[in-house]
């Protein structure tokens, strides 16, 4: 339980950064922190004490493998989620660069004049 709470602290820091900061790169960093902590949380849920990695080796006992193997399902879904995170980060970075080219600033309160 202490591991879960420490993990949620990282996510809370990312949420605070996303809401309260005005710099666009700070907002992107907050988004990235939330993403990392959520991926880590899903893997933490699937962990077993004294677990084995879910890869079957030839000399391995099948019964022991199914008793002690960690959960492969969150690992597979987090694998897709990490790569999607890279794609959305590239999209956010592209928007930030375009905004800087147009307004010459990263301050969100300066970019409020979004018209025409």
């Amino acid at each position: 339980m202490i591991v879960y709470i420490l993990n949620v602290i990282i996510m809370a820091l990312g949420l605070y950064c996303l809401i309260a900061k005005r710099h666009i790169i700070k907002k992107i960093i907050g988004m990235v922190l939330i993403e990392y902590s959520m991926n880590l949380f899903l893997i933490l849920i699937g962990y077993r004490i004294n677990g084995l990695a879910p890869i079957l080796l030839p000399e391995m006992n099948r019964v022991q493998f199914s008793q002690y193997g960690v959960d492969p399902l969150p690992q597979a879904l987090v694998l897709t989620s990490i790569v999607i995170g890279l794609g959305t980060l590239a999209l956010m970075a592209a928007y930030a660069m375009k905004l800087y080219e147009k307004y010459r600033t990263f301050d969100m309160s300066e970019i409020r004049r979004l018209r025409g």
């Binding site: 690992q75 990490i82 790569v83 995170g85 890279l86 800087y100």
Partner: peptide
Amino acid sequence: KAPDIAITQVIVEVLSLIILIRI
């Protein structure tokens, strides 16, 4: 005990650091 994701995370982290340093 998640070696596949560890490898993917290292690669993705390097790439996202490059993107963030670029902007």
